[in-house]
Amino acid sequence: MTTGISLIRENAESMQPPRSLWVPFPLGRPLGKPNDKAFQHRVIAAALALLERTTGPVLEDYPEDAQTVSIEESAACPVSFGNTQADATTWAARLVSELTQMQPWYDLGKRRRNGRSLVGVAGEPMQTMLKKLGELLDSETLPTAELKWFKLAIEDAKVFYIEALTAQPGEYSAQAIEQILWHETHLGAGLRIFYERFTASPKLAIMARMVASREAIGGSTGEEIEINDITKKKK
């Protein structure tokens, strides 16, 4: 038997899993609040209680919101972008320069989190990856032969920046972090260019969605194309 969390009530209503607890939390936060043990236990208890139900499907609403801070109340981002080489003529130079500013904050954040970091899916040094991403931007090409590397490199780069931007203790607005990442950093600007290039490529348009969020683009990231058969996709 299963019980679980649903983040989009309408999706759960439609698919009708046997037992599901809809929670009014942001996507990416199924238990509501990070580092709030009591809050997380209340959510779990409500979902586990559904196991006692003897008829279904059961879709219950969780009554408690996970209050998050507004952009205005968000802890301040420690990184100042004023010194990055905005006038550097190449993307590679700008991204590597930005990295030197981010690195101490990333290191500080990692120490605050007792050594925990999500960086490392690509298994390459951040400088190598950012330089290569910059070179792709400079040469106005898409990494068609290295799409898997590209996916992992941009995931690592994005989470590296998120960890740096939230290095200091405090409660951050996820929206504020997104806004800084996408609209104040060279990385965000570069990723938005990659997004445009993927979108313009008929064969690779489906990949655009992993590059930038709908919030970053300010609208839909393209028609929803779901793959029905993984083997067909690879042909």
Binding site: G28, R29, K33, N35, Q40, R113, L118, E215, A216
Partner: peptide, 25 residues
């Protein structure tokens, strides 16, 4: 030590950065 390689760019990762239990309790 868990890390995340999820293809969607459309959900918040900053909470998971702070606390693995937010996603995997």
């Amino acid at each position: 030590d868990l890390i995340m390689s999820h293809s969607s760019a459309n959900f918040d990762r900053s909470g998971f950065v702070e606390d693995v239990n937010l996603v995997f309790p």
